[in-house]
Nucleic acid binder design. Sequence first.
RNA 1: CGGGGUGUGGCGCAGUUGGCUAGCGCGCCGCGUUUGGGACGCGGAGGUCGGAGGUUCGAGUCCUCUCACCCCGACCA
Length: 415
Amino acid sequence: MRQSQLFTKTRREIPADEESRNAQLLIRAGFVHKEMAGVYTFLPLGLRVLDNIAQVVREEMNELGAQEIRLTTLQDKELWDKTGRWSDVVIDDWFKTKLANQTEVGLGLTHEEPLTNLLSQYVNSYKDLPLLIYQIQSKFRNELRAKSGLLRGREFLMKDLYSFARNQKEHDQVYNQVAKAYDKIFKRLGLGDRTYRTFASGGSFAKFSDEFQTLTEAGEDTIYLDYDKKVAVNKEVYTDEVLKELGLKRDQLNEVKAAEVGNIFSLGTKYSKPLGLNFVDDNGHEQNVIMGCYGIGISRLMGVIAECFADDKGLVWPAVVAPFNVHLVRLGDSPAVVKAAEELYTILTKNGGGVLYDDRDESAGTKFADADLIGIPYRLVISDKTLESKKYELKSRTGRDAVLLNKDELLKKLA
RNA sequence: CGGGGUGUGGCGCAGUUGGCUAGCGCGCCGCGUUUGGGACGCGGAGGUCGGAGGUUCGAGUCCUCUCACCCCGACCA
């Protein structure tokens, strides 16, 4: 893409109404626009990052054999009444509204009810199970206070996977497979070495749930982490009793701030029972389906990645999520430079990975500062100077120095 | 939802005890000079001062109500 045609622009100054580093940088660099508190529009660069994150998650879900669907945003009150979760006492962050005929509806904040109800129409026999079904879509939660930029919004993009098993043993297997897939996802996103499986409160059908917590000062959770065992305990269940049960010692644990990027739950029959999701087993007896749910905050991950990797010059995107692989920067506008840059742009565009071509008539300093702020993994400079040396100047966003490469070396490196 | 703070061109800000055509920086437009780390000169455009009501000869400034945003706390099924 040509940067001259990108409708967004970078800003030199930080927005006055953002405190969090992720939102400040993402707004300055033109990735997101704040619509209102906790509600962000994703601009061309930001949408590319968001899609890239979702794609990694999608690939690992598909690898598990999960099937993707899209559920509705509008929620049927009657369905939620059956599980008792329409109540504002039980769930205090609903967005509720009304149809023209005064029927109450809600905006989906999670989707156990509609999916469980949906499946009751298709699942009859033990032969129909197990099933893994997921969705990636916007969810709405009426948070009392939105904060931390993309980390806690009122409207956000989330992946939720739901599992449906015949019995507890089968459920446990699925649960562990999903946990492994989660490790793989966070590793692919570059967060592997700072994301820890964390014991957290489990709800009504399991003693614990597992959170995936990424270490960052911007996080809202406090966890107690054993670096050697790579296990952590959320502050909410940090008691002597729990530590004993988990075989953890208080003096081995470090109190750290973290952001919850994933959370997996065993649900038992909490939803299948009231909503009538049953199957007939091989003995001809009707049974409730055993369920689990597995969330990953896609837009939150974008904020967490921004927080984790940014430096004092701007954003730093891991290659898998970067909006483009290469930032081609043209310095000066001599005919030879323009010609060389255009040629290279054409070649790199076909090369895959994506290239952002800074073809603007701006000073070198402005272009470099913008490139650093936007945070694309490689910066490739074309100037009179590089043409003289007949080489291409490539610098990684995180590296100190640029290297000069000939064309073959360059294309090989960027392939 | 409790406490604290902020709303002034697109962005960041200043604006004195109420006073005359509301300023500054960035950005934007035009012309020229520049071009390897946010260049420079000259000339321009752009503002219902968050909104409503009130006090006053006169309100960005004072009063009342209201909306939005930020921070701390509580909350986060």
